[in-house]
Design a protein around this nucleic acid. Sequence first.
DNA 1: CCGACTTTGTACAACGTTGTAGGCAACGTT
DNA 2: AACGTTGCCTACAACGTTGTACAAAGTCGG
Lengths: 335, 335
Amino acid sequence: MRHRLKDVAEKAGVSVKTVSNVVNGYQHVRPTTRARVEEAIAELNYRPNLSARNLRKGRTGVIALAVPELDIPYFAELARHVVVAAAEQGWTVLIDQTGGSREQERVAASGIGDHLIDGLIFSPLALTAEDLTGLDGTPTVLLGERVDHGPADHVMIDNVAAAREITTHLAGLGRRRIAAIGSQRTVEGASARLRLAGYRAALTDAGLGYDERLVAPAPVWHRADGAAAMRDLLASGVRPDAVFCFNDTLALGALRVLHEHGLRAPDDVAVAGFDDIEDGRFSIPTLSTIAPDKERIGRLAVELLVGRIEGDREAPPRTVTAPYRLELRESTLGR
Amino acid sequence: MRHRLKDVAEKAGVSVKTVSNVVNGYQHVRPTTRARVEEAIAELNYRPNLSARNLRKGRTGVIALAVPELDIPYFAELARHVVVAAAEQGWTVLIDQTGGSREQERVAASGIGDHLIDGLIFSPLALTAEDLTGLDGTPTVLLGERVDHGPADHVMIDNVAAAREITTHLAGLGRRRIAAIGSQRTVEGASARLRLAGYRAALTDAGLGYDERLVAPAPVWHRADGAAAMRDLLASGVRPDAVFCFNDTLALGALRVLHEHGLRAPDDVAVAGFDDIEDGRFSIPTLSTIAPDKERIGRLAVELLVGRIEGDREAPPRTVTAPYRLELRESTLGR
DNA sequence: CCGACTTTGTACAACGTTGTAGGCAACGTT
DNA sequence: AACGTTGCCTACAACGTTGTACAAAGTCGG
C-alpha cells in the first residue's frame, strides 16, 4: 500500500505540515524532529503523490517533447539529448509522436494530456504559425525551421548557410552536375526550402547554373524516398556527379540505389547528407554530412522552455541559433 | 486563462457536478441542460485538469515505457508501436530512457514520476528479478528476456528457436565456419545467452563443431561494438565464412569492417542479424535477419498492462510469446 | 525577570475534480 | 388525494498536498 503524509506524521508524532516541510527541505525544523520524520519516511517508503502536489502547486514538473517520428534517427538522437538536459534540471520529459500530421500536431500543441504538462518542446512539420497562436498559453519552444516568426521561442540552425557550405564542398571536389534530393513544394517544407536556397546559392558561388532537372522532390524524408528520388534521377538521364540530400536517411537511400545501379560513391557520384545520424558513420561508404550540435540544441530548448515556465511568459519570443559542423567522410572524400 | 468546472457551471447556470456529469457522459442530464453546458464548455474552451481528476480517481491515464536507449533503432521502432497501441485505448505513454544502467533502471521501475503513472512497460537490461520484487506494486510488463520467472507479466519471442533457425540458414548455405558476435558473460546478457544457445544448437544440428574462437563478445550492442568484434575475429586469423550477429546494429558494424578489409558479403562472409531494423533494408548489402513482430509485441504489452491495471493485480504473472519471421536478404543470399 | 524577537510547530483552507447522499418535481398507481 | 417511483439536479465531502496565519516555545538584551 502507498502511504501518505498523514501516515508518516502519525508515525513520527508530528503534524502533517511538518512532514511536508521536511520533504520540501524547509528550514526551521529542529534537527531532532527532522531526523525522526526522515526515519518514518524511510520506514514507510513514503513517496509524495505528484498529482496532489501538482494540483496544489499548479505545476506538474513534466514537459513534453513532440516529434514527428521516433524511428527517424535524427529525432531519436535529439530526444535523448532533450531528456538528458531536462533531467539535469529535475524535469521529466514525456515524449509524444505526432506522425507529422497536422491534426496530430494540433492535438499535441493544444496540450498533451491537457494540464499534465508545464511546457512543450515541439518539432512541427505541418503546423503553421496561426495554429500555434491559438494555444492556451502553454509555454512552447519550437525546433526546426517551420515557423519563421511564430509566437513562440525557437531553436534552429542556419540551414541556408549549412546547405551552402556542404554544396560548396561538393563543388570544390570538381563536381559540376550537383543534384539535390528532398525538395518539397508543400507548406510543410520549410527546411526543404531553406536547404534548397543554400544549395542554389552555392551553385552560384561556384559559377554553376541551376538546372531544375537535377532537383528531385521527396514528399517525406525516409530512406525509401531517397531511394525513389535517386532512381528517378538516374532514369531521367541527367547523370549527376554529386548529390546533396536534404537529410541523412535520404542519402542512405540514395547510396543504396547507386550501388544497385553499379555506380560507386564517391567515384561516380559523391553523396552528402544532413543531420549526422549514427548510421552515417558506419554506412558503406561512410556519409559526409552536416552535423548540427544536437546536444546543444536539446540543451538550449530546455533552457528556453524552463525560462519561459518559471519566468516571464509575456516576453517577446526569442530565436536561438545552434552551431553545426561539416563532417566529411568517404561518400565525398573516398577512402 | 484556464477555466474550471466552476466557471462553466456559472456560465451555464447549473451546479459544478452537473457540468462534471456532462463532461463524463453520465445519463440523467436533460438534453436541454446538456446542450447549455456543452455550449458553455465550448465557449470557455474548458479542459479538465488531469491532476485534480487523477487525485480524485487514483488513476492518471499515463503509462510509462522504459527502454535502454531510444537511438537504438529497435527500441525506437518498438516505442512507436507501443505508443500507437496505447493511444487506441486512450492511454498516454511517457517514454523514459534508462541508459541501461542498473541504477537508472531501478529508478524507472520504482515509479517514474512516482504517482504519475498507472503502469510500466519495461525493457530491462541490467535489472534482476529481485530488483523487481521490491516494487510498490505498480503494474509492470517486461519486454525481452531478462527475467525468466520474475514477478511480472512478460512479452518475449522465442530467442533460442529464432537464433537456431537463422544459424541453420547459414549452415544451409554451405558455410562451415560460422562465427557469432555479441556474446556476453554478464548477468545483463540474458538475450545473449539465449541466442548463443540457439546458435550452438544449430551447429549441432548441422553436424558442425563449436569453436570458442569463433564467438566474439560485445559488451553492448551498438554498431561500434559489432565493428570491433569483427575486427578482432579477422585479426585472430580464424577466418569465418559466416557471422551471426546477435542484433542488427552489431551486424551493420560487422558489414562495415568486412568492407574495410576488402571482404565481400555474402561471397566471402555471409552476415545475419537479429531485430529487423529499418536500416537493414537499405544497407549495402541488405541484411538478413530475424524479424520479431514488433507491432504485436507492443500491442500485447499494452493489453497485458491495461488488463493488470484494470483487473486482478494479484493474478499470477503471465508470459506471452510473440511470433517472428526469418527475413532473408542480400547479406546471406547475395543479389 | 520582563518584554521583544526568533524559532519551531500546528490548524485550517484551498487547489479542481468526482462519489455519495439526498432533494425536488413530475408522473402513474391505488 | 396520498403514495411510491423515476428523472434530474444539487450540496457536501474527500482525494493528498502546500501556503497562510498563528500559537507555543525558546532566546536575548536590558
